[in-house]
Design a protein around this nucleic acid. Sequence first.
DNA 1: GTCTATATCGGGATAGAC
DNA 2: GTCTATCCCGATATAGAC
Lengths: 202, 202
Amino acid sequence: MKHDAQGKDVKLKILNAAKKLFAKKGFEGTTVRQICDEAGVALALVSYHFGGKENVFYALFETFAPSFLQKEYDLADPIDDLKSLIREFALFRLAEPELINLLQQEVMMQSPRLEKVQNIVYALWLQLRAILEAGKRQGQFDYESLRHTVHFVVGTLIFTRNSPFLDPVLQLKEDLSVKEDQEDVIRYTISYILSGLKCSAQ
Amino acid sequence: MKHDAQGKDVKLKILNAAKKLFAKKGFEGTTVRQICDEAGVALALVSYHFGGKENVFYALFETFAPSFLQKEYDLADPIDDLKSLIREFALFRLAEPELINLLQQEVMMQSPRLEKVQNIVYALWLQLRAILEAGKRQGQFDYESLRHTVHFVVGTLIFTRNSPFLDPVLQLKEDLSVKEDQEDVIRYTISYILSGLKCSAQ
DNA sequence: GTCTATATCGGGATAGAC
DNA sequence: GTCTATCCCGATATAGAC
């Protein structure tokens, strides 16, 4: 029975290797050979199990972001809705930073692959839009342009702090091995965004 | 003399084509053939004039972002400094959205090319960090974590609104051909960020 | 300086042994 | 199901004519 389960194991090893490499070097910048080396399996297995590099990409999201963003917001309390949305996104980002990174890359270059995947996150952003509109209508948020405000909030949320590219700027003296408290990150994010929306009642 | 100047013309045509395509499809996702087709010149001219695709990338930044971010901030008035910095970045982003888009892609995937180019924008972010620290010291900004705050502000700034990827979310009814007033965009951005920093005296 | 034709390399996918 | 060896295509870069 160890033999029977081996297929699943290999598929997962490939997915994890691909997740890591795609996030780091991009979809096009990653070769199937690199993926298989990283996973410690033979070159042919990507085609055998997934039917090509492209399908590994899709499988990544199906596997690691299956139940992402089911939540519905009734807009009765936009402030609370927004807090929930920020939390939901932040938790996913903390859990799957590579996936967010990859998604962000694809979004920036409007890749053809995005189409089959964008609904994962578009649903969330539609909710964000609705929350912002409701909050303004009810006088809890204050902003001039819906369009720019959506961009600001999405920018704040999506710009993953896990990317080390700002490290040279920040010259972190803190010990990074100490895992940061998720709740702190969420609290900072909520505070920045709600203040940015001139929301007094936080 | 038309002949003598033609070299410059071709180089510029290649650079503009590359800027457009790199921003849209990424460095690796763009082929030299596509660049030359878009520019309307022969395939060989990229190698002839630039010595390869990679050097076209570097020439892009040398050509279109030469005097970016010369400004020095003395930190005497952090609020004013931050406003200036936001304006400076926003103007560049409005002038060269493709370049920001490309830079953002490279940053996300930590491309090896980034090294020769990152100083262009790292200088700005170091200034941002200094301004944020000074502003907190002087009691004008209020935040808990410098690290996250830098990320928030950079995220807000860099997430270019020119990328059409949020259009389906925003279902823009506004006529996009009407050029938006730069000053409005800058004003919105300053307002969001300064509020996010709990800066009362805007 | 610019073009066409081609050499060379590398990547994805597959054939076939085990 | 997994491996090695190979095919085939497409991409960069170059050679050489004009």
